[in-house]
Write a protein that binds this DNA or RNA. Sequence first.
DNA 1: TTAGGATATTAATTCGTCAAGATACAAAAA
DNA 2: TTTTTGTATCTTGACGAATTAATATCCTAA
Lengths: 164, 164
Amino acid sequence: MTERDAEGQALDLRLIRVMRNMASALFGSLERDIDSYGLSAETFQILELLYNKGPHPIQKISDKFSIPSGSITYVVDKLEKKGYVERLPIPGDRRKTNVTLTGEGRSYFDNIFPKHAQTISDNLSFATDEEKLELIAVLKKIGYGISDRQGKGNENENRSDPLS
Amino acid sequence: MTERDAEGQALDLRLIRVMRNMASALFGSLERDIDSYGLSAETFQILELLYNKGPHPIQKISDKFSIPSGSITYVVDKLEKKGYVERLPIPGDRRKTNVTLTGEGRSYFDNIFPKHAQTISDNLSFATDEEKLELIAVLKKIGYGISDRQGKGNENENRSDPLS
DNA sequence: TTAGGATATTAATTCGTCAAGATACAAAAA
DNA sequence: TTTTTGTATCTTGACGAATTAATATCCTAA
């Protein structure tokens, strides 16, 4: 990789520091919000996935969120104990298990999601819509760049739902 | 807090998703780099602090990085066992303990920091300098906004080294 | 059939946090 | 003064959360 001159490097270090602080303030705030619903950021995202895209095999969830295979059982167990999801066998392949939202899980998410979305908007209210569009464009470019450079084995991934 | 219309809300959700994915790609990449030096993101940042700003009392470090008081002992222990830092009493207050870089810690950091800085530049190379400056401005604004709203008890913090 | 891989769980372990405790300082009361 | 009360600092030990490595079951293709 090409080396940067001292000045450019200093700019990069400044940017990474601002990013770290912003991320810590923003995601910290969102995590506290999610915590108030009795969930973790991780379990919230899993519920969100099931809510928006229906049942998923355990392994898909594990992949999507980079949760180790040994941990995903533990995580799904917790959600199952709370009554928000259930495990269902997948016909045709008895190795797989589908995770699906229960009625209770759905209505709980119906309840908390709008609140959380409002918290997100509150936290992002310090930028204008124009700035937000600019952020989306640039941050996407960076995220893509990094993921593509790494993912030398994932070329066939869903590019219509980028970075998802 | 004022509520957003559906369209604005959708923009916010888009932005937060892009931010999450970007952060996970970027910080994941940086963490893997740091991991290759046998450190965690947290311990790396502590070494960086001691390197740039000299010895710090344990409690300052604990505060700065929001590490619980029970955990900071554990973290400093690990760095001490590796020989990178040592604990020294602070004259005048026997409750406090200073954490300082050892010679070994300093030369180790001398060695790894330039490598890590290069990794940072590599990961940020997908944005132009102009875009980076724009990012710094907007992300700072968001980070400030969130921190200031929360920190109703921290008005007296160091604003010349913002969000640090 | 059999060999190899995919999927999920279990058990052991590691990691980090919390609550409680030990010590020291500082300020107010006696 | 000295005593008391409250607070700050750090560590300890018990605990829970999350990961790893090993295991059980199942599928696919040679």
